[in-house]
Design a protein around this nucleic acid. Sequence first.
DNA 1: GCAAGGTC
Length: 806
Amino acid sequence: MKTVFMVAEKPSLAQSIAKILSRGNMSSHKGLNGACSVHEYTGSFMGQSVHFKMTSVCGHVMTLDFIGKYNNWDKVDPAELFSKAPTEKKEANPKLTMVKFLQVEGRGCDHVVLWLDCDKEGENICFEVLDAVLPVMNKPRGTERTIYRAKFSSITDTDICNAMNSLGEPNHNEALSVDARQELDLRIGCAFTRFQTKYFQGKYGNLDSSLISFGPCQTPTLGFCVERHDKIQSFKPETYWVLQAKVNHEKESSLTLEWDRVRVFDREIAQMFLNITKMERDTKVESVSKKEKAKQRPLALNTVEMLKVASSALGMGPQHAMQIAERLYTQGYISYPRTETTHYPENFDLKASLRQQTNNPYWAETVKALLSEGINRPRKGHDAGDHPPITPMRAATEAELGGDGWRLYEYITRHFIATVCADCKYLQTTISFIIGPEHFTCVGKMIISPGFTEIMPWQSIPLEENLPKCEKGDVFPLSEVKLLEKQTNPPDYLTEAELITLMEKHGIGTDASIPVHINNICQRNYVTVENGRRLKPTNLGIVLVHGYYKIDAELVLPTIRSAVEKQLNLIAQGKANYHQVLEHTLDIFKRKFHYFVDSIAGMDELMEVSFSPLAATGKPLSRCGKCHRFMKYIQAKPSRLHCSHCDETYSLPQNGTIKLYKELRCPLDDFELVLWSSGSRGKSYPLCPYCYNHPPFRDMKKGMGCNECTHPTCQHSLSMLGIGQCVECENGVLVLDPTSGPKWKMACNKCNDLVELKHAAMRHPMHRGGQGKRQGRGRGKGRRPGGRPNPKKPKDKMAALAAYFV
DNA sequence: GCAAGGTC
């Protein structure tokens, strides 16, 4: 019997599709990578009885990167990344050993059916799968076809079966357009990022320049936030005047009328209107209109809408919300959370989903009523052909989900129920009044039936004051006519929800990547999240965007992504040649890059305004070995030492504290040693700022402290303070921490192992005089003591220490 | 150490 190998984009889809095609009659087992499963069954294929093997990948199998030597930032000119630097495909997630997995499962199969998502990325993954499995599959006999592509637009029985009955071929052009996108993003993003980072790194003391990134999605995302900032900054409040009239009706109840002109910006004109209307004693009703209006129930939920509500109503950031949603999904509480679709599949069992919710204390009554009185047909949404909308899949309690998990589940469920509720109906009454020549209006709303707002109370129509019962021609006495002086207000910073809307509108990122881009600009310190999840750009974010505006605004405009995608679509549609588009687009960006490099002084001028140059920051800490003047310690990341006289910067270990180490000096270069420690209870070791950056011995690398130094006689070196092999790691040596007495500690110079010596009472080994030689300890040669020597009579103090070594 | 896109 022949074997048909089938591959979906993710494990959950492989399972659903296999279940449909096998009519539930399949056997499943986990694959060798632990992430993917294989579902097997017998069925018919092209009129023959065959064995089916359905499995999946986990998104992209491969990722694009430069070949190794081009990843050295110090040796490669970023300009080379545009053409010279070769790229290679690497496994996207080496832990999953996806290529091996596909080859093990695909070996000896006769046909392959590609069930990857029906978008361009999916088409590209088709070819990644083929690259892996074709070499190990059986060769076709004669003209027999091997490769098939299933095209489906939803995971429903009919759609999947239809796809199986009308298999096509993978679309090479669409796959190529993704190859081109990958290469463009890589070359452009990395070139700009490396250049900017290296240019600004170490120039300003209070600038965190460990990474100053650029990308065709993240940079315009930042651009939106700074654009709003600029609007706020340049905002000039204007004074305007509003005419307000109040009438008395019934007993003591007063009604405020809205002026039809809304407001005027000229004081004299406003005053004139006041004078005219003030002469009147009462107001006449011109007309009364009543209209029945409806507020529509929501569309079925997709990712972007979920993220917006999570941010604005639940106060959860998009990245966090997505993590929670993924957890709810893998635990079976909700459907797949990454979808653009807002339309339920035709055969979606809405009632079955509702029935699961009949025991929930918060909405059981609403759900039961819906089930007994009949549900409303959901609105017609958009079918993107990816996944069904996000819905609850089983009942849950607050206790089992906890905190944010429950809050997100509650929202998803309420939203789902709302989509099958009735619209909210209300009666809108508009009364028009006339005072002299001026018209005023009063609007009131009365709920007829709350509909979906019952389950989504935050959407309910605000209650408004009761309008008087009146008819055309009625006259009411005016109680007050006055002029209000007001000022226009600046807009506020962008909320995350507004930013998501902007990104979606301009096609920046996808439902899955939007949270990543927002997270990026937060983590890189370009924006901070303020109250109400508003995004406020930092000085760095503002300077970057203003710098791009100054040099080449296209780099930050939201059109940068869509312009490139337009080109890529030409490849996908077969209207343009892959190589030509790639070369042409790269050429444009290469020119932009060179212009940017030549004009970087323009951005630097802005940096100078916001940040202090290195020489002016930091506090004097230790002496330079060359000029013997004090160098300054710059605490801002990446923390470093700077000698303003020699104009040299020395990098330091990060994530810890740096202190002067007793004014001791390195015997090799005369630099004063500093002491790095990871915290009050953590490990610490001395280091020479010069050696740390310029390793003195061949067996040392950049970034090594004295605890790894092989200097044979220096009293701070590994050779002198090394005690024994580390138990936790392979090559580490436990080195005495000379500052730790009287509770002596030893720390591994490779891993994080830290050993406390409980009873050792001893003099500082550094002060023990000249007799201390290596005695067989030291670099890599540390030996573990054979047995515990008599603690009362140690041979020497170092041996005593070793005796405590666990 | 870098992009953006899949997904675990």
